[in-house]
Each structure stands twice: as C-alpha cells, then as structure tokens.
Design a protein around this nucleic acid. Sequence first.
DNA 1: ATAAATTAGTTTATATTATAAACCAAATAT
DNA 2: ATATTTGGTTTATAATATAAACTAATTTAT
Lengths: 94, 94
Amino acid sequence: MFKELDPLLHSQLRLAVISLLIGLEEADFTFIKEKTGATSGNLSVQIDKLEKAKYISVVKTFKGKRPLTTCRITTEGISAFEKYVSNLKTYLNK
Amino acid sequence: MFKELDPLLHSQLRLAVISLLIGLEEADFTFIKEKTGATSGNLSVQIDKLEKAKYISVVKTFKGKRPLTTCRITTEGISAFEKYVSNLKTYLNK
DNA sequence: ATAAATTAGTTTATATTATAAACCAAATAT
DNA sequence: ATATTTGGTTTATAATATAAACTAATTTAT
C-alpha cells in the first residue's frame, strides 16, 4: 500500500538540496543557500546529514582567499532519491 | 524554484491518511490504522492535527456497543492535498 | 591603520514534531 | 471471575528542524 519514505529525504530542505544536485551534479554552499532560501545554519546542518549518509560528497576548498564548500550528489544519493520518488508515488495517486 | 510544502501534509502518516481519504471519502480509525500500519497513539494524534486544521472531519459514534471514529476529508483538505502535490512536483523534476 | 561590514560558514540552544509507552473503559472470551 | 481484546486517548520521550549566536577571515570605508 504505502511505501516507507526515507526520513533523510523526507525533509523539505534536504529534498531541495538533493533535487538541486540531481540536476546540477555540483553546487557550492552559497548557491544552494540562494536557491533553497535556507538559512546558513540550517543548510550547514542538513548538508552534514546528507554527507554522513553518503548521499552527497562535500569538498572544502578556497575560492581565492575565501572558503568554498562544494557539494556533489553520489550514486548512492541518486538511487536513494529515485527510490524516494517512487515510494512517494504510492501516496499521490488520488 | 522550490515551493513551500505544507508541513501538516509533509508527514508520512498524515499524508497517508489524507491520501487514503482522498480515494475513499470515508474511513474509520481501525481501517486507517490497518492500511497505514500506524500505532493507535500516533494515529490518534495525527488525526487530531488534521481535524484541527479542518483537513478532515471526525465523527465519533458507536458501532453496536463499541466506539467508532469515522473520518472524512473536507474540501479544504482536498485542496490542501492538491496544492501539496503540485508544490511537491517542484522537487521531483530531475 | 583601524573600525565597520560582509562572506562563509559552524555550533549550540530552542521549538516543533513524531513516536512509543502507559493508560482507560467497555466488551468479549475462557 | 479474570484475562484478553477492541478502540481508542494521554503523556512522556526521542528525534528533527530551525534560529540565534558565534567564529574566523576578508573587504571596504574612514
């Protein structure tokens, strides 16, 4: 009937981050923050969770003299997202 | 870009309840409990929230000598669900 | 040169939410 | 008579999300 929804993806902000990265393959912290409208603090926390789950990889470098946090989705993240979307559909068929 | 997801519906159990009621127009507590696999306590709480938001109406009667809690979706509930689904799509287009 | 403001975040505290455990009342089964 | 089941509710706890406060360095303005 209703399939389980991965709690890691069933969060507005984390879902937005993953959704963004699915289309882009790479995005930095500030860009994600702008596109999602999240606060830095919330985004920082949620990116951390996605990274710990290996749904995204995070690389911290410098752009000139400033820190730059770059995120990419992993293959694990892609398949988790695809499964989430497929399971979600069990809730949406009116 | 990403549309706001109604937090009342962005919950696995409450979404399942609404999704069920959209198709059925009427269902009792026990039936919903079976279909969703929820615990009674959790279901009781979530039904309460949906009722307080006027997304569903709840009528308590007796079936023979036993209590019977019957739920129906309201027009407000239907349009909230439709909006939720439509907003959700902004997250799903890979 | 120094102070103020901005960038790019992290950490921590708090509010909200979800879930489970404990409970209740009545009915039915042993 | 008492044990179990039905149909829930209430309350306590765990998990989550969010915001506020903070850090550290960089620009920009004075």
